[in-house]
Design a binder for these strands. Structure first.
Lengths: 206, 206
DNA sequence: CAGGCGCCCATAACACTGTTATGTTCAATC
DNA sequence: GATTGAACATAACAGTGTTATGGGCGCCTG
């Protein structure tokens, strides 16, 4: 019972990783509805019960994928090189879209209830906010350096996030016309947002 | 066989309506995952087979709810009184949010794949664009009357829609802080968008 | 080194889902 | 009133997530 001699096949952490890898592949290849416990168990060459030995239930597996999706997003945003404040914010927006388009099924798990039996755990939701902080920091920087009107940076960042998410979400759902590329549309949206932030007009113009 | 004497219980159109009403209630009361064919059949006091007599499958029922959701949205937007061009666009945005918040489960069916076995039919997707046309027309009016910079009105409308959808979607999903009301956040976003549309800066400011 | 304990795993089942084949029952027609 | 045909309930099929039941293997103990 010496803490490292407990499993029959191999390292339990390794098994966990294998399960998550296969779940991730299954998700990316065939979409959320194809990610069933039976299919997953077949992939790792075992019975369903093995999955339940490593994870409490399907929710727990999806929770890990959810976290992995947000970690990819956070990492992609963190990779964006710092530049002038406004262009940096726009670069973050571009990176956000690239990440979502590159991992559409992950994005679904992160932002839609595409699997009935999944609702992210409170802890996971906390982690998900990490990526947001990068964006909020970038907005704050714009205000601090005086290139955007002062105000509640978090609020502005939330609005930016909403715009990014909405455009991407509608694009992934097929509501956007194919005549304009999603990239160009995002570019346009970012420009409008920037202009609105740089030069706010009086609160009550006609 | 005189075309009106075919059903055992009552008017088939009436039965259809009853099924959809119960489905709508079930959806609003207990969410998408509670909308099962068995529960629905129990609600109308019949067997599941009756549902399949009136609808090809569950998809067809959900398709009707999808259409009903977009019809409510279109009607709500159409009810917004015409005013000065820019305030009218903003009023449309406010009405859009009100409608979404008032019918959250409908909004889920319309914009997320919350039910695995449902994907709106091509015809339904066409109908869904009707509400968008109201928004696009309002943006075009701003350009025609010279209160917004000229450009592709449809593109701007798509961006506006994306912003609305993103903010509402994140709000419904619980990603927005409760410290600020969704209404106030939308107000702020609409203002930023308006300012960006009214006074576009040079395309390449720092 | 033999014994036995304990964990791991596969099988099969439960309760649920959408969907449908099998009979039964009722209403309109001849 | 008998017949025909459509509408219906029941029960089943193939799936789903999850778990209770046992068999089998590895490791510690005597």
């Amino acid at each position: 019972m010496s803490a490292a001699t407990r499993s029959r096949t191999s390292d339990p952490l390794e098994a966990r990783r294998a399960i998550l890898d296969q779940a991730s592949q299954l998700l990316a290849e065939s979409g959320p509805e194809a990610l069933t416990m039976r299919k997953l168990s077949q992939r790792i060459g075992a019975s369903t019960i093995v999955l339940y030995r490593h994870f409490r239930d399907k929710q727990a597996i999806l929770d890990e994928l959810y976290l992995e999706g947000f970690e990819r997003l956070r990492a992609d945003l963190a990779r964006v090189p710092l530049s002038d404040p406004l262009p940096y914010v726009m670069d973050l927006g571009r990176a956000y879209r690239r990440c979502a388009i590159a991992n559409p099924t992950y994005y679904q798990v992160m932002f839609t209830r595409c699997i009935a039996e999944f609702d992210p755990s409170p802890e996971s939701r906390e982690v998900s906010k990490q990526s947001f902080l990068i964006l909020a920091g970038a907005v704050q920087r714009c205000m601090d350096l005086g290139v955007a009107a002062r105000g509640d940076a978090a609020q502005i960042a939330h609005i930016l996030w909403g715009t990014l998410h909405g455009l991407i979400s509608l694009e992934l759902f097929g509501y956007m016309p194919p005549s304009v590329s999603g990239e160009a549309r995002l570019e346009h949206a970012l420009t409008i947002m920037r202009d609105g932030l740089v030069s706010p007009l009086s609160p009550n113009i006609p």
